[in-house]
Design a protein around this nucleic acid. Structure first.
Lengths: 204, 204
DNA sequence: GTCTATAACTCGATAGAC
DNA sequence: GTCTATCGAGTTATAGAC
């Protein structure tokens, strides 16, 4: 669908998608105007509408980019330095924690924002958001499966992965509302306790 | 601040706040226009701006209403029929589950939507959202304290209440994105397992 | 593919009569 | 307190030259 062209200076299309990605992340979809994107990307209106029929189509391209980049941008760097499958899960959560720190709790998960803003408004967008969550959940599930019998056999890896995503998103939401990482940290600490219990239960 | 007048037919001001509440819940703040609110409430522009200086002030009134109504609208009916403090917590979660069912997973927590959309855009709004979360968390914490020594003494009731809110919000988010209550149910089931473990730990 | 100019419309908010 | 009329800015998207 999208061109590769990951080398050399970015094309107009790439600049549009990347700029839109940043602005949608920082402000949301509605609060970002097409004019904002054009100014920031230094592209003219005609060019944008040459590549994308509507602003919503541009959002779809952004969501596709997130699916494509989850592994190279987010997971691969973490998994490279952390071989233990259970530690990997918490290292991923630590990554979101760092995003909160760096932005003074103004920026959390790029998908979560859009999920609540857009899920009801466009079915195409909702599907792409679900795809992003699916992608994330599957990666975490693989970590849990890699943990083998350190987790009890009756634990459903898919449901536990869903739970971990739930904790991440809910924690980020509260951190942003309180402008404090405390609720995120408290939630992750509880999750750690729970997973610790599960590991202990499996060892008995 | 706001008038009582909870009897008789609603005043113009009440109609505005209630209509705005419903529309902000269904569509979010940006996606709801002032014209939408006026049409739905059958109020003229001049009247709205007589009561509220800006659209944002109307949102603040909505958020104040939510703080005011958490107990009478949400908690009291549940607590009345469920005396057990730990069961109360899960009965509250069941209430949100019913909201998901009734709306085909289109509507979750009224505050969560606004938290992600508005936390960065207006400090006054963010503070009101934090107040709503605080209010909710305190009520749940009281349940946990009422459970007494059924929970281990080393468990911090405030942090566990934060965790429960995290699970609720994260579960609702995924349910909306997948248009399925499954992620919410899976998350609440895991939470139930965890709290069950804690109760067991306290009993040892 | 990119440019400028602008159409067609909606936005939040205001003025001033009643 | 409520009404109508409307302002001025900003919105997404398009037309047509280059």
């Amino acid at each position: 669908m999208a061109k590769a062209q990951s080398e050399g200076k970015p094309s107009t299309r790439e600049r549009l998608v990347e700029t839109a990605r940043q602005l949608f992340l920082a402000r949301g979809f509605e609060a970002t105007s097409v004019a904002d994107i054009l100014r920031e990307a230094r592209v003219n209106s005609g060019s944008l509408y040459y590549f994308f029929k509507t602003k919503e189509e541009l959002l779809l391209a952004v969501l596709d980019l997130y699916v494509e980049k989850l592994h190279p941008w987010v997971l691969d760097p973490i998994f490279e330095r952390e071989p233990d499958p259970i530690a990997r899960v918490f290292a991923v959560l630590e990554g979101y924690r760092q995003m909160l720190s760096m932005t003074e709790c103004r920026q959390g998960c790029p998908i979560g924002n859009l999920a609540l803003e857009m899920s009801d408004r466009s079915e195409a967008v909702r599907e792409r958001i679900a795809l992003n969550f699916d992608n994330w959940r599957k990666a975490i599930r693989q970590c849990l499966l890699d943990a083998g019998d350190r987790l009890p056999s009756e634990v459903d890896a898919d449901k536990l992965a869903t739970f971990i995503l739930t904790v991440m998103e809910g924690g980020v939401m509260q951190a942003r509302a309180f402008r404090s990482a405390e609720p995120f940290d408290a939630s992750v600490a509880m999750l750690r306790d729970y997973v610790g219990q599960l590991v202990k239960r499996a060892g008995e």
